[in-house]
Design a protein around this nucleic acid. Structure first.
Lengths: 336, 336
DNA sequence: GTGAAAGCGCTAACAG
DNA sequence: CTGTTAGCGCTTTCAC
């Protein structure tokens, strides 16, 4: 582009005709600098638009006043968590760095360990990890997991009551008179997905409906896999009249597949999702779903993390927020 | 939390009984290391779960393979841009760091200069800046601005056709027979807001309707200010029958104010927003608005940036995407 | 009050 | 093939 190099502390020192040590003292408000020196240095800093390099500062200092949020990718769930985290960090004096390898690690288990290793110790004072696959990480710096793979462990966590949410979803379909209720399941390695499937099974069983294993197809939270699952469910001989998807993205994919097959939602197929991402309300028809208070989960995670970093007392390490059914237009009473 | 320190290259070297230089060579795949040494070091790295510190690596190297996205805050617009940027970075080999001071700098003009100064030169190879207030920044590293304050300058930019979008919005209201059309304007220092107001004025003038300055109230993209603006517009003697807000958030605020005043949307007041953030479809009633292809703006910005970093040829430095009217249920033909 | 020097974790010459 | 050394930008003793 051009040759303008970054302004460093040396440049400031040279222009102000002092040593870099003095500049550093001025920046950090240390005592023992003459007031006219302070003034001169500050003017040069303003002139040059100098700002300390985060990398260099982090490397030298133990505390950085930066908090990391680690995400596997930027999708609707993680960006909602982000908004909540940003809400909660406001006014704390911490800055926020979000880090993602952008699908480079993909589904690889343990991405969070890599990221954490790269940022922690240097660069951030603590981290919120979104949907981590392991929770036995331990790096000195405080860490809070949002919607972790494994259930509450040693690590501080924030999650939603997934089991109860699934019960609400399936209960709603049962109330509408549906009996053949299929499920597109989530990633089997994720605790939240297991809970959602568990709630589905338990609710059916409680209603004296035997669980038909052929009605449960793996969606894996992956559009392509979910598409397969929806297709095979909707083309089976005695196809289900209703479907519960382990997340909204899968439900929306199922909606597309239904449309391609000439099936109308909700007339021919009732559909319930999970998550209540903004996109679910934009679907045609708007998707009935289970709302997780995603943004609040981000807020609670960040608040907890800040307390841990500041070594303030915390009541509990495991926060569980309640889920809620949001009835929109993708469900209807069973036809026949 | 606990005492487990970060694993550094020294720890690896000690455990593998080699020098840190050798470990570095193994990590970076440099030639000149015995194959059994490589194997031993790699095993230790795996055992210890070592990963190079981003801060230290960045400080030493010119290239970091990390791209920065700088945002003033995480709100709907910036998170949509983020999703697009993430889409585009996939498969490029770059990692993504998003940086925000979380409102710490607030509305302070020049936040992007601060951030850039903190990250650029070290830490990132280039940056996408979302809604910057200045575009005369120059730091050696390539920078692409999304929806910048000032119009296309030297700096590569990606924006939407705001003027045309405003024409669409006001034209729609005119088509519905409205004549008293108010506007809640945006931040006067932002180019996009000026264009939106310009389009509003031009469309009215083209329809031979004199612009009534009392019908234009400052919203400043700020909920509190927008609330004030909506209130004063809706309580004036001869109140407008329609309103165009410079962004969706202001429009939604206006909707709330209307409800508080006992005014029904769209029966008593037609309302058009701008941006088409997901939340606009969730409003009651769903908001008619002008869609900016925000996500695509993020994609284009990232693609352009990657090309600039790789010093590949680019056709143009200024990308302008077209806006589109999305008719929902907050507008209706003028009553009387 | 001020500056010289060491060192945070890492990589890139350069010797051995 | 391997290790020693210098230095990225910064902060912090510790002399002067």
């Amino acid at each position: 582009m051009n040759l303008t190099r970054r302004v460093t502390i040396r440049d400031v020192a040279a222009r102000a005709e002092v040593s870099i040590a003095t500049v550093s003292k001025v920046i950090n408000g240390r005592y023992g600098v003459a007031s006219d020196t302070i003034e001169r240095v500050e003017r040069v800093i303003a002139d040059l638009g100098y700002e300390a390099s985060l990398a260099a500062q982090s490397l030298r200092n133990r505390r950085t006043n930066v908090i990391g949020v680690l995400v596997a990718d930027f999708e609707p769930f993680s960006t909602e968590v982000l908004k909540g985290a940003a809400d909660a960090i406001r006014g704390t004096g911490f800055e926020l760095v979000v880090y993602s390898a952008g699908g480079r690690v993909g589904e690889h288990v343990g991405w969070e360990r890599r990221y954490l290793s790269r940022l922690s110790g240097t660069l951030v004072d603590g981290a919120v990890i979104v949907t981590p696959t392991v929770t036995d990480i331990n790096y000195g710096a405080p860490i809070v997991a949002v919607d972790p793979h494994t259930g509450p462990s040693e690590m501080p966590t924030v999650d939603a009551d997934n089991w109860h949410g699934a019960c609400l979803a399936v209960g709603h379909l049962l109330d509408l008179g549906h009996r053949r209720i299929a499920m597109i399941s989530g990633r089997p390695d994720l605790q939240s997905a297991q809970k959602r499937e568990g709630g589905y099974r338990a609710t059916l069983t409680a209603a004296d409906i035997p669980v038909d294993e052929s009605l449960i197809q793996l969606g894996a939270y992956d559009p392509d896999v979910a598409r397969q699952a929806a297709y095979s469910l909707l083309t089976m001989p005695d196809r289900p009249t209703a479907m519960f998807a382990a997340n909204d993205l899968s439900a929306i994919t199922a909606m597309e597949v239904a449309a391609e097959l000439g099936l109308r939602v909700p007339d021919d197929l009732s559909l319930v999702g999970f998550d209540n991402i903004p996109e679910s309300a934009l679907a045609t028809p708007p998707l009935t779903t289970v709302a997780q208070p995603i943004r609040q989960m981000g807020q609670h995670a960040m608040e907890l993390l800040v307390r841990l970093i500041r070594e303030e007392p915390v009541e509990t390490n495991h926060i569980r927020l309640t889920t809620q059914l949001v009835e929109r237009q993708s469900t209807r009473a069973a036809g026949r």
